[in-house]
Design a protein around this nucleic acid. Structure first.
Length: 133
DNA sequence: GCCAACGTTGGC
DNA sequence: GCCAACGTTGGC
């Protein structure tokens, strides 16, 4: 079981949109590193759902409901399907992650532009702990 | 809205 | 294959 983080601008597609839709095709990724991460995703893997720009916070947990398939908009790229797992009780902000010793090595902090990134199990668990104690 | 950081493109 | 130019992302 692996853990990931995906980013979305809430004005484009928010956590609430995902909860409303019950599932969504995570397509439109046009970056090789991000694509490689998409390829690694297995059904049942958990994803942190991060709101960039407006919130700059991890707001929910989603899971991979369908493994890689061709991006419907461009067959040279791939997509996965994700479904909401649950909303975090309190969002964990980027500012929190930056100052937290356990999270300061996260890809989110180190390489902020990557839109699909791996998360370590310890990081994932600690984020849940920060959010829900 | 600005701009730094980074990835991609294309001329050589 | 190098690297300058360019476009995009995303924090501030």
């Amino acid at each position: 079981m692996n853990y990931w983080l995906v980013k979305s601008e809430p004005s484009t597609y928010s956590w609430d949109d995902l909860q409303k839709d019950k599932k969504t095709t995570w397509d439109g990724v046009r970056n090789y590193q991000a694509r490689n991460n998409l390829k690694e995703m297995k059904k049942g893997d958990l994803l942190l759902f991060y709101h960039s720009n407006e919130d700059k916070a991890i707001v929910g947990i989603a899971k991979v409901s369908k493994e890689q398939f061709p991006d419907p908009k461009d067959k040279d790229w791939i997509a996965v399907e994700i479904a909401p797992e649950r909303k975090l009780k309190t969002p964990v902000t980027l500012a929190q992650a930056k100052v937290d010793k356990k999270l300061s090595n996260m890809v989110l902090v180190k390489s902020s532009r990557l839109s699909v990134q791996p998360v370590k199990r310890e990081e994932f668990d600690w984020i849940i702990n920060l959010s829900e104690g």
